[in-house]
């Protein structure tokens, strides 16, 4: 099977500072790929390059190719808005829209696309919230503000919101870093469940989390991809000295 995302010679800058250098990587379909590395290594920037979120910063610049189902998302005439619909994103801190209800949060993306039919929206809300194991907790409070939920619930709401637009890839930027251990465990279970139907790329600073949830792991250091392979191999038998040092906690 062809990879879902193929990154070729990707470079990224903030102003004159280069934050990613010649990244080449193939991300497999229906699997969880973890991006690890010490802070400041370009993990988050890399993730944001995969759905063209990097460029919303006015100083930001990108070169290279990212092939999504074989199509270069940085090609001429490709609309970033379309790309972001197919490649969804979950952020470090839960960011539900506080002025919207839980229901409206989930369907925010669909409403942008002009879906107004109440029945299909209801169905999407139920399906998305069930998918993230939130339905039973909030089904009676769908009209409450998204900000009224706990941190872990908010993050699952944000995942449901991203899933409602039916993306093929889900990018997660340290989705558990602001959460308590129990909420983290719930999200990790969820990630494994979603991996059956979605391609997931997750940035994490927590190596244990990478080991727990991912099928593949990529190790970044100072803007370069140092090593990439099946998680088992990266953790048990890293080929590169830097990777080994990082995995074994000798730096960072």
């Amino acid at each position: 099977m062809a990879p879902k995302l193929e990154v070729e010679d990707l470079n990224a800058w903030f102003g004159t500072k280069q934050v990613l250098k010649n990244i080449n990587i193939k991300i497999e379909e229906n699997a969880v790929t973890a991006i690890i590395g010490p802070s400041g290594c370009g993990k988050t920037t890399f993730l944001r390059c995969l759905n063209r979120m990097h460029e919303i910063n006015p100083d930001a610049r990108v070169s290279g190719k990212v092939l999504f189902n074989g199509l270069n998302i940085y090609g001429n005439g490709v609309d970033p808005v379309m790309i972001r619909k197919k490649i969804g994103m979950v952020f470090q801190k839960p960011n539900p829209f506080p002025m919207m209800s839980i229901y409206d949060n989930v369907v925010a993306g669909l409403k942008l696309n002009g879906v107004r039919d109440k029945k299909s929206l209801d169905a999407v809300v139920r399906r998305s919230l069930e998918l993230v194991n939130l339905w039973d907790e909030v089904k009676d409070d769908l009209n409450k503000s998204g900000a009224s939920l706990s941190g872990g619930q908010q993050q699952r709401l944000c995942i449901a919101r991203a899933l409602a637009v039916e993306p093929e890839v889900l990018l997660m930027d340290e989705p558990c870093s602001a959460l308590d251990p129990i909420s983290t465990a719930k999200i990790e279970v969820l990630i494994r469940k979603l991996a059956k139907t979605y391609t997931i790329v997750i940035v994490t600073h927590n190596m244990q989390q990478a080991a727990r949830v991912s099928d593949y792991t990529a190790f970044f250091y100072l803007g370069e991809l140092i090593e990439y392979g099946p998680t088992k191999q990266i953790f048990e038998n890293p080929k590169h000295e830097l990777t080994e040092k990082y995995i074994t906690g000798k730096f960072g």
């Binding site: 919303i56 960011n95 829209f97």
Partner: peptide, 13 residues
């Protein structure tokens, strides 16, 4: 900004 990013990531213009 997290609010802007949230909606942009959903494919908003």
């Amino acid at each position: 900004n997290s609010q802007r990013e949230a909606i942009i990531a959903l494919g908003a213009t």
